[in-house]
Design a protein around this nucleic acid. Sequence first.
RNA 1: GUGAGUGUAGCUCAGGCCGGUAGAGCGGCUUGACUGUGGAUCAAGUGGUCGUGGGUUCGAGUCCCAUCACUCACCCCA
Length: 423
Amino acid sequence: MRLTAIRGTRDLLPEELVRWRAVEETAREVFGRYGYREIRTPLFEATELFVRGVGAGTDIVEKEMYTFEDRGGRSLTLRPEGTAAVVRACLEHNLFAELPVLKLYYIGPMYRYERPQAGRYREFWQAGVEAFGSDDPALDAEVILCAYDFLTGLGLRSLTIHLNSLGDEERQTYVQALREYLAPHWDRLPARDRERFEKNPLRMLDSKEEITRALIQEAPQVLDFLSEKSRHHLETVCRLLEREGVPYRVNPHIVRGLDYYTHTVFEVTAEGLGAQDAVLAGGRYDHLVEEVGGRPTPGVGFAAGVDRLLLALEAQGVAPEPGPELDLYIAVIGEVRAEALALATRLRRAGYRVDLEFLGRSLRAQMKTAHKRNVPLVALLGEDELREQRATLRDMRSGEQRSVSLEELIPAVAQMLSHSNPN
RNA sequence: GUGAGUGUAGCUCAGGCCGGUAGAGCGGCUUGACUGUGGAUCAAGUGGUCGUGGGUUCGAGUCCCAUCACUCACCCCA
């Protein structure tokens, strides 16, 4: 049988990578403006890191991890998300001691064993930021601001920022209240939501079951259970976002699937994506560092799904013009390949992107290739030209053509390129 | 993990009910009309283990079973 990319993974071909790189560049640029520095961690880690970091009871850990044993009998897992590994690296290299507020970003593939569907892959890319060391709500606001600048910087429109707070210690009180409210309705609950009721009642808040949704309408709200301090934290975040002109909606039904969140949680959805419309999500995680084995260190961050961002950009018709991949194509006629290669080398070392003919095809075929590749300039090198140590330069846009001595070729190329490309 | 739909040329798809020599449109490449010049036009050439494996049959793209993949939704999440 023919070998193919395995389920849920895919190849990114040269054409698509133009857009991928644009997204990555925007991420680096915007994150850099907010003071984040890049970190890269391994694609796999000790399984235990994710069990402790993400949470033993979460779906991610229970049924979605790529876990395997290496030849030394260690249990390893392909990272299902980025935050836990970043925390591990910071602890290992004592980065928290270096700066009182430590800001790091990452871009890379993550792995989850899920059924693939629109906007969901088993190997998918995330770009995320983590800010450690401060529990100031201004940092939460700044992280959301950074996310907002990133998304709008990509050209995305029709975004909704959902904001909520899960509080901290009071979360347990709320969960209990939610259970007490729902318990009398047990008989009416769909099987799925009964499971949630037992395992993770917060999940019922974003249930898609009609009956549950109706019940949730009347249910006690997280926001009413927040402590004075937590409420103040949320209010400050809101006030700062308003002041900076970031549109958001407080949505008490936003819950996250990872256990480590406290206080602020947020999710950004984009239009045109189908069922998987969350394009970026994050929040505060004040206990995660401790959970992974460090001293108590607050943190806040987000992760954006690069694959989904690209789908959303496509759905919203935001397509950057690709621009030519080559500056010049050398068309070769007759036995002049050594000279053609030498010419290409000279031009390349002068900084131009150059390709040339290797198949000995007709000039017509070569011109077609140059045209198809959208090359602005073609240098014609044949035995006639070579005798006089000259080449013919053709501007593919205007059709204008002139003979240039090989010595003056580079300045002539520079001049013709600047002409045909007036920006 | 659950459910539904779909796999035939590079792309979009017909053929399938009712088994009998694999097709169309678009695109790619090569050559020519046009001796060393792209875009437009025309002509010729070039392309498929019908997802894979098995079964039924004299004969399977077509019927049956299995399997893999894709799509969408659930679930979950970025």
